[in-house]
Amino acid sequence: MKGQLGFLVDIDKCIGCHSCEMACKNQNQLDPEIRWRIVYPMKGNSSVPTERCFLSLACNHCEKPECMRVCPVRAYTKLENGIVFHDKNRCIGCRMCIMACPYQVPQFNSNTKKVEKCNLCAERIEQGLNPFCVDGCITDAITLINFNEFNEIKAEREIEGFPNPNITNPSVRFIPYKPGVQIRRDV
């Protein structure tokens, strides 16, 4: 597959259940401290209390990945399907990418003394399968998209809580939360 793969995250559908994160962890057999995908709870506002709205993020497989630019050992490569692939064999654990990633995606594994991150289940993609998080999302809030064909008009590139996308042009789009009518007693 060619193009630029990425995620469409429907925040309106996301219920913050952490199943995507846990499916990733379970199927990719990650160490407990490592979270390739993280469901971030958001601070509340007038329409939604704190920890009732979430941002589920994995690696954003950026068009201009900072991790790849700064890595001194070329552990990162951009595959022709757009996946920013991290090769653990090359990594020497210098943590430069951790400093440079605007999204705090690469994580240092204190066991292997190397960095690791989401590779968008590259092997599964080759077999025509979805990443584990997409298949593990209970409410279908995460979709794998190819930016070459993607034209969902409701999708946003920038959203509150997501760091400035102009640095790296991340391959992720969001459908924002649409609050309903609320009759609340003590607001």
Partner: peptide, 8 residues
């Protein structure tokens, strides 16, 4: 301080 992800 690095760029913050999400509000919390």
């Amino acid at each position: 301080v690095a760029l913050k992800v999400a509000g919390l």
